[in-house]
Structures are given as C-alpha cells and as structure tokens.
Design a protein around this nucleic acid. Structure first.
Length: 281
DNA sequence: AATCCACCCTGCAGGC
DNA sequence: TGCCTGCAGGGTGGAT
C-alpha cells in the first residue's frame, strides 16, 4: 500500500510495538520476496533490539542494536500488521495465519508484526546502518519532499530540458522520492497542469509552484492516515481515509470538483493518470 | 542521460 | 461454483 503517506502511516503504527524492544523470534517463511532475502535473516534479527524506526522515501528502516538496519519496502500489496497490542480500550488479538504471511516478528512486550504481501513486489534487506545511503535501493533516490534539499530552484533545474511528461517526471524517484501514482495526479490537479505536458516546457514559475503543493497533498494524506484503496489497511488494522479527499484519482467520469467537467483517465507509461481537461492546461 | 516498455506476482471485478 | 481480460498505490533492467 505504498506511497509516502501510507508508508509513513505504517511506520507510525509500528513504532509503539517495535521501538526500544527486542525481536524475540523471527520467522522467515520463504527465501525471497521480489529479491532474495538476506543471508540468515532470521538469525540476524533474533535477539536484536530495534532502536529506531525511520522512513526514507517509501522505505522503512528499522535500526538494530547490531549496527544493521532492516530495510523494508511494501511494493504494491505489502502490509505490516501489528497484533497482540492494546488499541484504545480493546486488545488486538493475533489473527490466524494468512496466505502470503512471509515474515513474522515476535516482539518483546507481546506484539507481533506480520509482513504479508500477495504480489511479492515488496522487499527486505539488511544493511549496515552507517553505510545505508550506499545501498543499491537507496543510492539514487532524490530528495525527501519535506527535506531542505527539495526546493523550487532544485525542481526547476532538475526538470529543465526533460521531454518526458510531467506526470512521468514526478513519478521518477530520482527527481523527488516518495510520490506515486495517486499523489502525482492529485498534485497536478491542484497545480492546474496537464499531466501530458513535457516537463521541460512548463514555465519555471509553475514548476516552482509544485513544491509547496507536493508538501500540501502529502501532509494532508499523512494527516488522514493515508489512503485505503482495495481494503488496504494501516498497521493497526484501521483504514486511512484520504481516498475520500481525492479530487481526481480514480474518479473517471465524475464531475471535476472545481468546474464540473467529467474527469478523464488516460494511460501514461502504462499507468493511469486522472485529470480535469478544463482546469489542467 | 533520457526514455520506453516488458516483466516481476496474485487477486479481484466485470463481461461473457 | 466457469473462463477470460484488464487492472491494481511498486520498481528494475535491457534496449534504444
């Protein structure tokens, strides 16, 4: 369930169950997800204390007291479910094992964290924390949308001369890290930019305006606990609710919330884009 | 460097 | 409790 807001929501949901606690047992049910899992993963996790849970782009990093970090990517369908903890006034019991439960961590304190991923586009790896920036999955990533390195001049410069559509450019994790198919459509709607326009031919002022809009959309989505499409859930089983705030995504044929023109769906680089043909030029 | 697109895998909805 | 197609929030790798 993975764009930046969903991953951040998962991180926040896992933190109380994991941070400061030891992994008492680790069960690894298959040798690979999208790529092979690291050598002796269960052994390298067992007995280790999770010092911190961090997020970089769409990755979660669990820093262990061994000097390694567990790198987690949810792919398209990955979930991290917490059980055996209190949620408000009631206790979340451990569910029966599900098909596609690939990794199960039993935490000190009684919590269980289950990684379930039907499509197996997700990934896990162990990396030395002090060398994580050089990890092959992280090394080329662009700046964090909320970081200081993501600013107007940067984005204008980065997109200068690019012939690819602005939709494709913003999906490129080397340009800015963490946006995905939903939030790019939402950002471009708010910016009034047609997703088909060549990135390098859009006025600098309009490109610059994307920076605060990216932050605005992502902030609102995080605040809402992410988006729950197709039954995806937060770590505690709750549903995010930003999907109710989509202005164009997944709304083909519905009236534009601004002008009433039917929202259009097109395919770009094999993925759906949604936009208002009247408001976005 | 930029761009295109086949591919990885399973599940589900919709049409027949 | 059919069969088939298309679609799904991810990203890589090879070709051009």
């Amino acid at each position: 369930m993975p764009e930046l807001p969903e991953v951040e929501t998962v991180r926040r949901g896992l933190a109380p169950a994991m941070e400061g606690r030891r992994i008492e047992a680790a069960q690894v049910n298959r040798p690979d997800l999208r790529w092979p899992l690291p050598e002796n993963m269960a052994g390298r996790l067992t007995g280790r204390r999770v010092e911190r849970l961090r997020r970089r782009s769409k990755y979660i990093l669990a820093d262990l007291d061994s000097g390694e970090s567990l790198l987690i990517h949810l792919g398209m369908s990955g979930r991290m479910l917490v059980s055996g903890v209190m949620l408000g006034d009631y206790h979340l019991d451990h569910p029966a094992p599900q098909k596609h439960d690939h990794v199960v961590l039993e935490m000190e304190g009684g919590a269980r964290v289950t990684f379930n991923d039907a499509r197996r586009f997700g990934a896990m790896d162990l990396v030395r924390t002090d060398r994580e920036a050089a990890h092959w999955l992280l090394v080329g990533l662009g700046p964090e949308p909320f970081g200081n390195e993501f600013h107007e001049e940067y984005l204008v410069e980065r997109l200068k001369g690019r012939a690819s559509p602005i939709k494709t450019a913003l999906l490129d994790q080397h340009v800015v890290a963490g946006l995905g198919n939903i939030y790019v459509s939402e950002v471009l709607f708010r910016a009034g930019i047609d997703p088909r326009r060549a990135a390098g031919r859009i006025a600098s002022k309009r490109i610059a305006a994307l920076v605060p809009l990216v932050r605005e959309v992502l902030s609102e989505a995080i605040e809402a606990g992410g988006s729950s499409l197709r039954d995806h859930r937060q770590a505690d089983g709750e549903l995010g609710y930003f999907q109710h705030s989509f202005r164009v995504y997944d709304r083909e044929g519905e009236p534009c919330p601004v002008c009433g023109t039917p929202i259009r769906r097109i395919v770009q680089s094999g993925r759906s884009s949604y936009f208002c043909p009247q408001c976005q030029k």
